[in-house]
Design a binder for these strands. Structure first.
Lengths: 348, 348
DNA sequence: GCAAGTTAAGCGAACGTTCGCCTAATTATA
DNA sequence: TATAATTAGGCGAACGTTCGCTTAACTTGC
């Protein structure tokens, strides 16, 4: 690697003081066009680049944002967090920041993991994802008094700024879509009560059912965990209900679960869409090949990443946040799995 | 955030010079037990932590490793790279390093993306993943003369150090397993010739077939891209061959593709395992629920991550590498999809 | 009992920036 | 023409470390 080119080298070459070079580069100083030209020439003759460690030391800011990435317990294979990460990385670079990845060891005290990063001044702030009820990271961030923005929330009135997907509104929209398709007996495969995301989405179901004055049979609301297998088992259970209580539509919280449901429906000799409607969540690329296509809710993950970074960087610059809490609605994508007349074959 | 606690603060508190504190902390100096105790007491009375920017500046090393993460074109939803990333992050921390994420913009010149990081001294080295033929990053790294280690290789004799999975050995082992199960007509769903990984794995197929003196019908080697749909279509094509040319086993390069193959087999009224054996690759969690279980090759991704970081950090310390190129064999996991006598479940 | 080696600790300098204050020259104002 | 205001640029200091050299005191060997 070549020797470091510093401000002093540039200054010598341009025959000015090095502090002047610094100021001119950052537009903090007016110089005569002639001097300006000499400096510019020197910079690219020598290939000068400011040293980021020196900048960090002087500015007391690392321009690094800490992010630790633990997979959701609920939906293991969701590509959501990958997209989120990618989106953050791009947005951060636009603003002169980078993402620093760090591990959260199960055996090591979580507080010291975060404290180490803050106290050594390695990072300027944190991004947290997959927030759940009583998330242990929240009090830690609070205690460290370090800027942080979350993807997800543990309650409506969280002290930390967050961006989240409005799962409640999303599921409500899906249910209203099913109602518009003529369904009345609509079931939902929810997640355990410990899941904040799951509870939130389930509320959307209640909202829409109540909004349409539709009664809800207790058997229609199932809570469970897992992926396709959960969908298969739970759907089989629903389809075994007496005919007048059997749901004609099943809402799920994950595309993969919807796939399991669709298999169960097919195994009962029924047709997805025509006989029983199904909806998923996430618009996962992995299920795009499935036929019939799965009606789903696409999360605007890219936008979440951008917003989270914008907010965090704003915080670091001392700007007051325009919105402390942002909720983004998912987008309903209607495919064949929830449409009665699509692919309808004239059948008996 | 609290005021910075520096070496000088500790020194004042312990009544020694600050340089002494620095040396004692790093074990570069012997002091009397009494002084040692005073320093230790001062450190945790004040909560001293060395400032990483100052260290970086002085040591001319950021202790940051650059990693840019672009999804494989071939297998979009493989969780391999996620595991790899996670493994790197942990291993790096053990060695006092962190991973810095940066974007590779399609519109921006790749060289300047890397050069900027190196010339500003933001990173000490790079990790590259998903190397393909004529990878544009290789000459860039070479030109920048920056330490780097790759996950994957573009050719046997690459100039950069790499760690890779021995896909050739893996597929060969899978094919030998099928042969041991009594199969003779074995087909493979390969990837386009532009895929280095695919070509490598296909070679394993040839190795094993030749090693067992089994003839290969040209129709058995299919090249294509895609996920489950590719498997479905290609398998249907294979199963439509005349009876004496029809393969009794189909090797695929991805679990998801194997799933498509299994659907095709079932759709033909045949039974996976008993009638046609199938193998996948990656041991993806997403297909664990599939019945019958998919025989697959598990990549030792965790080990790859550890090795890559070990090697890169070694390079940065100026240590000569024990092995410039490391090849790790995947592990064959035999499940029902490749066993004739395994309990048959009427599913899919 | 004296030169030579060992040990404990201090001190100056450097890593490459940015910031605030200062100075000299030029221009505008009275 | 004298004075105030503006402009172009310089200079010292600081951010918090680590490194190498020096010094003073204390052992050791003969």
């Amino acid at each position: 690697m070549a020797k470091n080119v510093t401000l002093k080298d540039v200054a010598r070459h341009a025959e000015v003081s090095y502090q002047t070079v610094s100021k001119v580069i950052r537009g903090q100083m007016q110089v005569t066009p002639e001097v300006r030209a000499r400096i510019d020439a020197a910079i690219d003759a020598l290939g000068y680049r400011p040293n980021s460690a020196a900048q960090s030391l002087r500015l007391q800011a690392s321009h690094l944002l800490g992010y630790s990435w633990q997979q959701d317990r609920q939906n293991q294979i969701s590509p959501i967090l990958q997209q989120f990460q990618h989106s953050m990385v791009e947005c951060a670079e636009d603003l002169g920041y980078h993402i620093l990845l760090f591990p959260q060891r199960p055996n090591k005290d979580l507080y010291s993991t975060y404290a180490a990063l803050v106290e050594t001044r390695r990072v300027d702030g944190f991004i947290l994802s997959s927030i759940e009820y009583d998330d242990p990271r929240l009090p830690i961030i609070d205690r460290l008094k370090v800027p942080a923005v979350c993807f997800g929330r543990s309650s409506e009135d969280m002290s930390l700024p967050y961006v989240d997907i409005d799962g409640r509104a999303g599921i409500a929209e899906a249910v209203r879509h099913l109602i518009a398709e003529g369904h009345q007996r609509i079931a939902i495969l929810a997640w355990p009560e410990t899941s904040r995301v799951g509870t939130e989405r389930l509320n959307g179901y209640w909202d829409a059912m109540a909004g349409a004055n539709l009664p809800v049979d207790a058997a229609w609301v199932i809570r469970g965990a897992g992926e396709s297998d959960y969908g298969y088992v739970a759907a089989s259970q629903l389809l075994a209900l007496p005919h007048d209580r059997r749901p004609t539509a099943i809402v799920t919280l994950l595309d993969i679960i919807a796939v399991g449901v669709m298999r169960a429906i097919a195994d009962q000799g029924l047709q997805v869409g025509r006989d029983v409607a199904v909806t998923g969540f996430d618009d996962m690329p992995a299920v795009h090949y499935i036929k019939p296509g799965v009606t789903t809710l696409r999360q605007p993950v890219w936008e979440v990443g951008q917003l989270v970074i914008d907010m965090l960087v704003g915080l670091l610059k001392g700007e007051p946040l325009a919105h402390q809490h942002v909720l983004l609605p998912p987008e309903l994508i209607v495919r064949e799995s929830s449409q009665r007349e699509a692919l309808a074959q004239p059948n008996q």
